[in-house]
């Protein structure tokens, strides 16, 4: 079974239908890059995967758990799906270490000392061992995003969702974040990544999906999707 299975997903906000029937299977270890013009529902698709946005209709299965079933323990299911946001969404009232420790303690119920050890390890992996006692507002954008990645990774997720992880960053800070994602890719982490960074997309993605008007209009190897010339709109987008 695929690690993510989306079947006929539709999502509407009132009269506005954003996702108009998405079918998508992601295999373990695949790195799916999602591209497309803004406002087409890329974020919405990602947010439906862990159901922080409720699907209107359709079925979503992640790690064998049916996310769209009301009987599923969504908190448990979400704790195995890491998500990284464009705006970082660090908790400003907690230190860097506390940001990473929080869910380990409260969701995984891991003892304080052990949770701190895990958090330190993850922060070390993103190169922020020296920032553990700082508050988010004392960090640069790139550092914030690395903390956010460490926070997600501390839960040992089986899938990672990235929603434009570098869009809010100054160009000189993008690389430090992209490098970490590339390292994750080397470790065969299953990922869905929304991005506008085409060279990064080509490098890290094993597969590219082009979303437009709430539908998947192209799906294949990144090179292939980017070179496909049968759609004028695609061409315009990649130019």
């Amino acid at each position: 079974m695929s690690i993510i299975e989306i079947t006929n997903l539709r999502k509407s906000y009132g009269d506005l239908t954003v996702l108009k029937g998405i079918d998508l299977k992601v295999e373990k270890g695949e790195r799916v890059v999602i591209v497309g013009p803004s406002g087409t529902g890329k974020s919405t698709l990602l947010r439906c995967v862990n159901q922080i946005e409720e699907a209107t209709t359709g079925r979503i299965v992640v790690n064998g758990m049916v996310m769209t079933d009301t009987k599923t323990n969504l908190n448990q299911a979400r704790s195995e799906i890491g998500m990284v946001f464009q705006q970082f969404n660090l908790f400003p009232h907690l230190t860097v270490l506390e940001n990473v420790v929080l869910a380990l303690r409260k969701v995984r119920k891991i003892a304080k000392k052990q949770a701190q050890d895990i958090a330190m390890q993850k922060l070390k992996e993103v190169g922020l061992s020296d920032k553990i006692d700082e508050y988010p507002n004392q960090l640069s954008g790139g550092q914030k995003q690395r903390v956010a990645i460490a926070r997600a990774l501390a839960m040992e997720p089986k899938v990672m969702l990235f929603d434009e992880p570098t869009s809010a960053l100054d160009p000189e800070m993008m690389d430090e974040v992209l490098e970490i994602i590339k390292k994750l890719a080397e470790k065969q982490m299953t990922m869905m990544i929304v991005t506008h960074e085409m060279s990064f997309a080509r490098e890290v993605g094993t597969r590219m999906i082009f979303l437009e008007g709430g539908k998947i209009v192209a799906d294949g190897a990144p090179q292939e999707v980017m070179e496909k010339t049968d759609s004028e709109r695609l061409k315009r987008f990649f130019r």
Partner: peptide, 25 residues
Amino acid sequence: KGQMEAARSLGLSYWQAMRLVILPQ
């Protein structure tokens, strides 16, 4: 809104997110 979303995405329940993330702020 991103605060609640980030908290929920980590697996915190609504009440945990309220108590530990939203209300302190």
